[in-house]
Amino acid sequence: MAMSVEIGGGTLSEIYQSAKKLLLRTRDGLEKLERLENAGGIDSPDLSTSVKRDISQIQSFCADMDRLWRSVGAKSQRDLWKRKVEQIAEEAQSLKESLDKYNLRNQKRAQEARERAELLGRANGEGAHVLRIFDDEAQARASVRSSSRMLEEASATGESILRKYAEQRDWLKSAQRKGLDVLNTVGLSNSVLKLIERRNRVDQSIKYAGMILTVVIVVYLIWRWR
């Protein structure tokens, strides 16, 4: 009978049944690996190795059955066993591809874990140095902004002072003209007029000295707070 065809001590039917049992066990093992992966990326090297070994055994069974079904006498039986063996081989190939994808994902997770560990290991070295650079740059930017605000405030203060001096200068000129008109009216001597002019020059000197002193103070304050 066709079913009694043997190879290596097993008939075609016996090998087929053994292959079916291994398919079920392999499928269960692969599903367990995927459940562990979904539960948190847990790896089970022993189970993975067992699944891989079972797939190899199934493929070996398929090679044996592929030779056996060709020895079956009846054509209808040969065609039936051909389809059965091809189905087992396709399922074994599908399980192998699933296992390969699982192994690739597992390798990727392991690589990412190593990279994270390396980054954490450098946290107190290069990473800390980079953070210090960022801190220094942030402090420098803050200092520049502070200095810019101080400069703007100092500039505004200087402009206000200069406007006041300009107003005082106009007022002094007006007062001087009025004083000269009064003096001319009462007929004061030239010596008195010269005295007034000298006093005016002194006032002018005091005014410019005050302006210079103000500018010096502003520049000093800007330099002091940078």
Rank of each mutant, 00 (worst) to 15 (best):
G210V: 01
I222W: 07
R67I: 08
R145W: 01
S148E: 13
V202G: 05
W81G: 13
W81Y: 15
S44A: 14
A166W: 01
R116I: 06
G158A: 13
Y208V: 10
I206C: 05
S205F: 05
R70I: 07
R116V: 07
S18N: 11
N200Q: 10
G73H: 06
G29M: 07
S13G: 05
A63V: 07
L24V: 08
L36D: 13
V186L: 15
F134T: 06
E152D: 13
K173C: 08
M3L: 10
Q87R: 08
S13F: 04
V182Y: 11
W69S: 12
Y208D: 15
Q93A: 15
L162P: 00
A154V: 02
S50V: 06
G9M: 05
G125H: 06
D79L: 10
Q139E: 15
A19W: 01
A166Y: 01
L36V: 03
F134H: 08
K52V: 01
S147N: 07
A113C: 02
L30C: 08
R53G: 08
A113N: 09
K164C: 06
Q93R: 11
S189T: 07
N184L: 07
R198N: 11
L30Y: 01
N38L: 12
A39D: 14
L188N: 04
I15R: 15
A19S: 14
Q87Y: 05
G210Y: 02
L213R: 10
R114P: 00
S160Q: 10
L80G: 06
K108Q: 13
A138T: 09
R83D: 15
L24C: 02
K101E: 15
L183S: 08
R27C: 03
D136P: 00
S60R: 08
F134I: 11
L120G: 01
L131S: 11
R198Y: 06
S18P: 00
V72G: 09
L188S: 13
L183A: 14
E6G: 02
E112T: 03
R199P: 00
I133Q: 13
G158N: 07
A2C: 13
T157R: 15
D64W: 03
R35N: 11
A89W: 01
E118A: 14
L12M: 08
I58E: 06
K32A: 15
W223Y: 07
Q93C: 04
S155I: 02
E90F: 03
N106H: 03
S50E: 14
R70D: 08
S146Y: 03
Q17K: 10
Y220S: 12
Y165K: 11
V5P: 00
S143F: 02
D28N: 11
L80P: 00
A138E: 14
R78Y: 02
W223E: 14
L188Q: 09
V202R: 12
S143H: 07
R114H: 05
A19V: 03
N184R: 09
V5G: 04
Q77A: 12
I206V: 11
T185E: 14
G187T: 03
N106W: 01
S148R: 06
D66C: 02
D66A: 13
S76W: 02
K21Q: 13
N106I: 07
R177H: 08
Q59M: 13
M211I: 15
R141P: 00
S56Q: 11
V5Q: 08
K194C: 07
L120H: 06
E167P: 00
S56A: 15
T11Y: 01
S60V: 01
K32D: 13
S191A: 14
G127R: 05
W171Y: 05
T157S: 13
A140H: 05
A39I: 00
R149Y: 04
